[in-house]
Nucleic acid binder design. Structure first.
Lengths: 243, 243
DNA sequence: CAGTGGTCTAGACCACCGC
DNA sequence: CGGTGGTCTAGACCACTGA
């Protein structure tokens, strides 16, 4: 089975991304068997009339995503992972969608309010700067999965009323590209139990997320209270730099 | 303030890593002010007699680590993050150590046993292949923080008795470099409550970790039951590839 | 406009793997 | 040994930023 791909120098996206995506699709479609070696970087480059550096960049992406494993001197191989990969940064919507659920939201509040002290600190707000506050229930297939409060600088989200199902989609270029989550467990109090439809005292996942835009600014502080029986949080970790 | 660095082509580690580490140190030492621009890639390359690609590779590393933010057309800037960065893949030991605790372990079991079905599957074991089973309490400053059961292929860990405080240190080259964690919350049953010294029914973090070695093989399956009042799980997330 | 990061090329040497 | 990934160079064009 051979791999076909036509580089298009006119396209909007760079060649190495086109190639990476193309290879990723081929891998997921099973064009290459598990544990099989990819064409070597030189072969790939030669066959597609690209430089080796470009071919290598494409493979770099796939290695980062865990789709491919490199073995020096031997070759690049399909990673031996049958299961579904990836749970990078994804909003709730995208996250659930991937798992085949139909995610919906039920707004409890979308307003511009004053900022609490911890919010001022986390978002590095100017004195007196206000925040957009989004409060909602998250549902999957009509089952409540989480209660979530998001706070963003007013300047980042001037009109919270306009936010649709996906906050990140609405934010566009200002959406977070990196985030830090603190994940804890807590027992549901009466109010949370009522909102989520669980017994009082049930164990919940309590997730605090700080989201950073591409420019490095912290643009999102979110507290999520998740039913753990329906939702679990997946994290992909990478090794620290070797000193 | 200027930045000094002598590239050493003889050294074991590649130039781009030397430079990255050197820059990282300089940044953490405050040689560059927050929000200040780094020397441009061309300047860096010229001054250090490196190619621009090499200088760029070094900066790539720092961007991945969140130390630096690139702005096309403008420059590369110190990321505006005062706080402690990074919680990549770290074993419990390293993790707690970074926070200033003294981590210790109390072994409950270190043995070679048969593999349960889910363990066979997760670790992709041969039929009948046995596993090393490690069971321990994790303590920080003499307080129990977690109960943990790790299972590894016997071939990866032939002598579980020899494992010291840090499993990853003992594994050496076979230690995981990538991991996937599933994080859930659960109420402590009587046994867990007893082990961890919490009330029965208290909310615990229940973390299942699959660790993958550099060669791509899954070498670790760990279940952790963590007291959430003392321990929280930090995850750094990155954005998905833009399609 | 000059300078920046983003991408790309063609070619090179090395350390490592498997035969 | 030949082929592989790992690193490095010198130079190029583009799109974008900011003064």
């Amino acid at each position: 089975m051979s791999f076909h791909f036509k580089p298009d120098p006119q396209a909007a996206s760079p060649l190495y991304l086109q190639l990476a995506q193309s290879l990723a699709t081929a891998i997921r479609d099973g064009v290459f068997g598990a544990d099989e070696a990819l064409p070597s970087e030189r072969v790939l480059a030669g066959r597609l009339a690209l430089s080796r550096v470009t071919a290598r960049s494409a493979i770099d992406r796939l290695v980062e995503q865990g789709l491919i494993v490199r073995r020096q001197g031997a070759g690049s191989f399909i990673a031996p992972r049958a299961e579904a990969p990836v749970a990078r940064l994804a909003g709730f919507s995208e996250d659930l969608h991937q798992r085949g659920f139909v995610p919906t939201s039920c707004w409890l509040q979308r307003a511009v309010t004053a900022a609490a002290p911890d919010e001022q600190l986390a978002l590095a707000l100017q004195r007196g700067e206000r925040v957009a506050r989004l409060e909602r229930l998250r549902l999957a297939d009509a089952v409540v999965m989480a209660y979530e409060v998001s706070v963003l600088p007013h300047s980042v989200l001037p009109e919270p009323q306009q936010v649709g199902a996906s906050l990140y989609a609405h934010l566009g270029a200002q959406a977070p590209v990196r985030a830090q989550q603190h994940i804890r467990a807590m027992n549901a109090d009466a109010r949370l139990a009522g909102l989520l439809g669980v017994a009082s005292g049930a164990a919940l996942l309590f997730i605090t997320r700080l989201g950073y835009a591409a420019c490095g600014r912290c643009v999102e502080l979110t507290h999520s209270y998740c039913r753990s029986d329906y939702y679990d949080c997946v994290a992909e970790l990478q090794s620290p730099p070797r000193p």
